[in-house]
Simulated scan of single mutants.
Amino acid sequence: MQGADDNAADQSPLPHFILDTQGTPHKQALAIWHEQVGLLGQTRLKNPERFHARVEYYQLGALVLGTAKTQAQSFDRSRYQIGRDGVSHYVLQFYVDGGCRPRFGAQTASSASGDFMTFDCAQPQMTETPDYASIHLFVPRPLLAPLLSAPDEQNMRIFSGGGALVGMFRDHLMALWRRAPLLTVREGEALAKPTLELAATVINGSVREDAASGVQLALFDMICRHVIDHALNPELTPESIAAHFAISPRKLSYLFENAGGIASYIGEQRMHRARMALADSAQRHKSISDIAEAHGFVHPQSFTRAFQRLHGLTPREFRALARDQRSWDPQLITRQMWWKWMTGIPS
C-alpha cells in the first residue's frame, strides 16, 4: 500500500504557488508583500501608491524555480536577519526586464536586462532595483556549494548576459519554466541535479567533471528547440545541426543516443507537425499525400507506416478522430522524448 502511495506522489504535478496582488485592496497588497519579503529582509518601495506584484513558483526536488514581476524597490538583508532566520540559500537570478544595483561591497556595477546575478543569503545584501521581471532559482547551500570553486564569493555577482554559458543557463531555466506545468514530482527531482551542475559551470566559468551532465542537458535542450523551430526546413540534417552548434557529429549522436538518435528525433518532430496538419480543419481540403510531402515524406506509403508505428493509427484514422473532435495531447511526443533522454543520464 505504501509503495502505491509513493508511486502516486511521484506522478503528481509539481508543487505550485502563486502570489498576485492584482485585485487585492492596496493596503492589503502592501502588507502581504512586506510580510513575504520580510522573511528574508527589509524592502522599501519607490512608488508604493502604484504597487503591484506577481510571483509564481514550482518546486523541483529541493530547488524552487520562480518568476517575479514587481515595482522599483530597495532590499536590505542584515547580519542580524541572517542570524535570526538561518537561511543560507543561493539565489540565482536572471533579469528579463530591469536589473539590480548593489549598494555596498566590491561590486559597484549594475546588472541589466538579460544579465545573471548570484546572491548568497548567508551574507549581507543591499540592493536597489527599478521595475523588473525576473526568473530565478532558490538553491539550498549544501547542494550547490560543493560544486563551486569559491562558494563564499558569490554574493551579488553579475555575469554578462552575452556569455555563451550564461545564455545556455538562461535558455535552460526558461525551458524548465515553460515545461513546469507538465512535469511530475519525479521528473522535477530528476531535473534538479543537472540544473545544479549547469549553474555551477556558469558560476565557475568552466566545466568541471562533476558538472558535465548539466551542460549536456542544456545543449540537448537547445538542439531540441532548434529542431522544433526548423523542422520543415528540408536542409535540416544531422550534419547541419552539428555545424550550427559547432560540435562533432559523434557528439551529436551521443547526446541523442537515449532519445532514439538525432535522425529519429527530426523525423518525429516532422511527424508531429504533420499530425497537427491532419487535425487542422482548415487543411481538410489537402490530401494525405500532400501533407506528407509538405512535411518531408516523399513516399505516402512510408509516411503511413511511420505514422502508424508512432501513433498506433493510420493518418486516415487519425484524421477521422480529429474530425470527431476527440482529444489528442499535442505535448505528448516532446514530453516523452525529454523524459526518455533524462532517464538515460548517469547519476
Rank of each mutant, 00 (worst) to 15 (best):
H311S: 12
T237R: 08
R250P: 04
S110E: 07
F51L: 09
L30V: 11
I241A: 09
G296T: 03
H226E: 11
A29T: 07
G86E: 12
A274M: 13
Q81P: 02
A211W: 01
C100H: 05
Q331K: 09
L92C: 11
R179K: 13
A72F: 14
R273D: 13
I288F: 15
P130V: 05
N7A: 13
F159E: 01
T184E: 08
N233Q: 08
E317G: 08
P330K: 11
R275E: 12
H16D: 05
A53W: 07
L191M: 09
G114K: 01
A164F: 11
H52W: 15
E268I: 03
D6Y: 14
M1D: 09
Q28C: 05
M168A: 06
G86H: 08
A306F: 15
Y254K: 09
S347F: 14
V166G: 03
R179H: 10
L232N: 10
T314A: 13
L332N: 13
E268V: 03
D5P: 00
A292D: 07
Y265C: 06
A243I: 11
Q301R: 07
I158Y: 14
G162D: 14
R323F: 13
F220Q: 02
C224A: 01
A282I: 06
A29P: 02
G163Y: 06
S74Q: 14
Y254F: 15
T118D: 00
F303G: 08
Y95K: 04
P151T: 05
G344E: 12
L65V: 12
G83T: 10
F159P: 01
Q325H: 14
Q22L: 04
T67I: 13
G23F: 04
I32S: 09
L147E: 01
C100Y: 06
L45N: 06
C121P: 00
A150I: 03
A294F: 06
L173W: 03
D76S: 09
S264Q: 11
L19S: 06
A8R: 07
K27H: 15
I345H: 04
L332Y: 13
P130A: 02
L252F: 09
Q2P: 00
R157S: 03
T237I: 04
G205F: 03
Q336W: 15
K193P: 02
W328T: 06
L236Q: 08
E49I: 07
I288D: 05
H299Y: 10
T118L: 00
V37C: 05
G344P: 07
E239W: 00
L40A: 09
E268A: 07
A180V: 03
L147I: 03
L196C: 09
R103S: 15
A322Q: 15
E49G: 08
S302N: 06
L217P: 02
F94D: 01
G66A: 10
D229Q: 07
P15N: 12
E56L: 04
T21K: 00
G261Y: 01
R309G: 00
S78F: 10
G205I: 02
T127A: 05
A294R: 08
T43Q: 15
F303E: 04
Q42K: 12
A259V: 04
L252C: 11
M276W: 06
E293I: 11
A294I: 02
Q154H: 13
R335Q: 14
A277K: 10
